[in-house]
Amino acid sequence: MEGIKEITAEELKEKLERGEKLNLVDVREDEEVAFGMIPGAKHIKMGDIPHRLDEFNKDEEYIFICRSGARSENVCRYLQDMGYKVRNMVGGMLAWDGETVSKA
């Protein structure tokens, strides 16, 4: 089975600082994202992913984020098996020291 591609919090921060256009998806629960999300990330709870597949495009890559990297890895595995291009942010928000924005 093909492994999941990964990106570190540091690599992600550098890409964002360079102005790269990335598809970031935060799969944490509402009460978790209330403490702040990476700017530009879209919030889709892990349990909602199967019902919102129409929001993903198989031609684009998506970077998934959770608190520690475990849930987002599960989401990556699920979507990769269905033919989507995915990458997991290892270490999750625990490893993120960049800017965060509060979810409105």
Rank of each mutant, 00 (worst) to 15 (best):
I4L: 12
I4M: 10
K5W: 02
K5E: 14
I7G: 08
I7V: 15
A9V: 11
A9C: 10
E10T: 13
E10M: 05
E10F: 14
E10G: 04
E10S: 13
L12I: 07
L12W: 00
L12R: 06
K13S: 11
E14T: 12
E17M: 08
E17D: 14
E17W: 00
E17C: 00
R18F: 02
K21P: 00
L22E: 01
N23T: 01
L24P: 06
L24Y: 03
V25H: 00
V25D: 00
D26N: 07
D26R: 03
V27R: 09
R28M: 03
E29Q: 14
E29A: 13
E29K: 11
D30Y: 05
E31L: 08
E32W: 13
E32I: 12
E32M: 11
A34Q: 14
A34I: 07
F35H: 10
G36V: 08
M37F: 03
I38R: 04
I38Y: 02
G40V: 10
G40A: 10
A41I: 00
K42V: 12
H43L: 12
H43D: 00
H43Y: 06
I44S: 02
I44T: 07
K45Y: 10
M46Q: 14
M46R: 15
M46A: 10
D48W: 13
D48M: 12
I49V: 15
P50G: 05
H51L: 14
R52Y: 01
R52F: 03
D54Q: 13
D54Y: 14
E55C: 05
E55F: 04
E55K: 12
F56R: 07
F56C: 04
N57A: 09
N57L: 04
K58F: 03
K58Y: 07
D59S: 13
D59R: 11
E60I: 09
E60W: 07
I63V: 15
F64N: 04
I65F: 09
I65V: 15
C66A: 12
R67P: 01
R67A: 05
G69A: 05
G69N: 13
A70E: 11
R71P: 05
S72Q: 09
S72T: 06
S72F: 08
N74D: 12
N74T: 08
N74S: 12
V75R: 03
V75Q: 07
V75P: 06
C76I: 02
C76P: 01
R77S: 12
Y78W: 11
Y78V: 09
Q80K: 15
Q80L: 09
G83Q: 03
G83E: 00
Y84P: 07
Y84E: 08
K85A: 04
K85T: 04
V86G: 06
V86R: 06
N88P: 06
N88D: 13
M89S: 04
M89V: 04
V90Y: 01
G91T: 08
G91I: 11
G92T: 10
G92C: 05
G92N: 11
W96Y: 12
D97G: 12
D97K: 15
D97L: 09
E99S: 06
E99H: 00
T100Q: 09
T100M: 05
V101R: 06
K103S: 09
K103T: 03
